[in-house]
Amino acid sequence: MTADPLIQLRIMQFYAAYASCVNDGRYGDWPDFFTETAWYRVVARENYDRDLPLSTLSLKGRPMMKDRIYGIESTIFHAPYYQRHLIGLPMILAASDGRFDVEVNYTVIRTKRDVAAEIYSVGRYIDRIVEVEGVLKFEQKFCVFDNDIIPNSLVYPI
């Protein structure tokens, strides 16, 4: 479908801002990209394709997202790493009444200390974006990853 070029541009800018947030590690700002009751889900493609409901991470609502951020910043012990998101061009699948169903490819490169960068997660976002008081927010964000095996652990949001 063809969406209004202006909204396409705004959606692209929205993804660029999201990438910047998670790349810079500004996790305190991360829940602000979502509506109050949004569903954020990281799910293996294997489960998604077979309609198996298990997620690697499934956070429903901003309060649960805030708990996750508390977890990654204060409770989960892990080796430090940077992550770099390369997000492709959003494909707008449907648009009506300020809601946009969007699919977009992503790659996350992880760089741990002392070692070379590595491809960490590769897949697509299957998202629903809504406009709330002139601001775009995710109402649903599914990160469906192709990589069959997670390299040890997944701590930060992707």
Binding site: A44, E46, L52, P53, D148, I150, N152
Partner: peptide, 10 residues
């Protein structure tokens, strides 16, 4: 069955 998680631990 609810699904799978797979991780490679070094």
């Amino acid at each position: 069955l609810h699904g799978y998680s797979r991780q490679r631990i070094p």
